[in-house]
Amino acid sequence: MHLLIVEDEVKLGDYLRKGLVESGFSVDLARDGIEGLAMARSGNYDVMVLDVMLPRMDGFQLLAGLRGSRPMPVLMLTARDAVEDRVRGLEAGADDYLPKPFAFSELLARVRALLRRGPMQEVSRYVLGDLQLDLTTRRAVRAGTRLDLTAKEFSLLALLLRRQGQVLSRAVLADQVWGMNFDSETNVVDVAVRRLRRKMDDPFPDKLLHTVRGMGYVLEQRASQA
């Protein structure tokens, strides 16, 4: 498998390349965004590990520059407290993110998980039944009616659509949408889900957002109950 690392921190970049090569991968390393974009466009990579903060062109600009090129899974590296960076990266097309500092074993596990998904397709629009979401225009529409969503509600819906059919725990939602560790004493996730459901599900006969007791939430079409 052929990987591309785009990381300007010399020690970290060299450390990641060495570790991934020792783990059996072929690895190229770019030190800035422009070099990384050129290599991503011309190379045949299976996964890209992409830092957000890069000289000459940041990670978000690099992702934008890849639109229309050969799609590949992207693992984005972010600062631990940069919540908006994580959300923005996922909305821009990153498939996963890993906050710094991190253990190499976790990065390796995430890279392998992305590889197991198989060939990726660049997706900016998601459809589930009569629900449509466009990441480029940031529009969500249900049965022809545009949904008036807040930024967090849009991010929550985008995550649920990306992983439709999968039960997502409150901890996963709290981490990937709010960048916070889930505290059982807080109801931020449940409140946001209720608000999203009120706009996306309540006005329509077919319900898409379901609660799985003791586990979390899942977005999927279910057969109508008799």
Rank of each mutant, 00 (worst) to 15 (best):
E106A: 10
G93A: 09
G59Q: 03
Y45K: 01
A113L: 13
S124H: 08
E122W: 01
N181R: 15
L75Y: 02
S224M: 13
R170P: 08
V167W: 01
R138I: 10
T186P: 02
K11E: 15
S184D: 15
K18I: 13
E84Q: 12
S26I: 11
E220R: 04
T145R: 15
K100E: 04
Q176T: 11
R117E: 04
G216T: 11
L157Q: 03
L156T: 05
L114Q: 00
G129Y: 09
S155Q: 06
R70I: 03
L3V: 06
D130K: 08
R88Q: 05
R70H: 00
A30V: 07
R88G: 01
G165T: 00
L159W: 04
L107C: 05
G118I: 04
A94P: 00
L66Y: 05
Y15T: 14
L90G: 03
L29F: 07
R146V: 13
E35V: 10
L108M: 11
L157N: 03
Q176V: 09
F25L: 09
F204V: 08
A171I: 03
D148S: 11
V21W: 15
P71T: 04
V83Q: 05
M39K: 05
V167N: 07
A140N: 07
D32M: 10
V193I: 15
T145S: 14
A103R: 14
M1S: 06
P55K: 11
R112L: 08
D14H: 13
T137V: 14
E22L: 13
R56H: 13
R146M: 13
V218E: 04
L161K: 00
K11M: 15
V141Y: 06
R163V: 06
L147I: 02
S42N: 06
A40S: 09
W178Q: 12
A92H: 05
V177D: 06
D46Y: 02
D183T: 14
K100W: 02
R142A: 00
A171G: 10
K100L: 06
A171P: 03
Q121T: 00
Y217A: 07
S155L: 07
A82K: 04
R197N: 14
V74N: 01
D32F: 04
S105G: 14
L115I: 11
P55Y: 12
N181C: 15
P205G: 07
S26M: 13
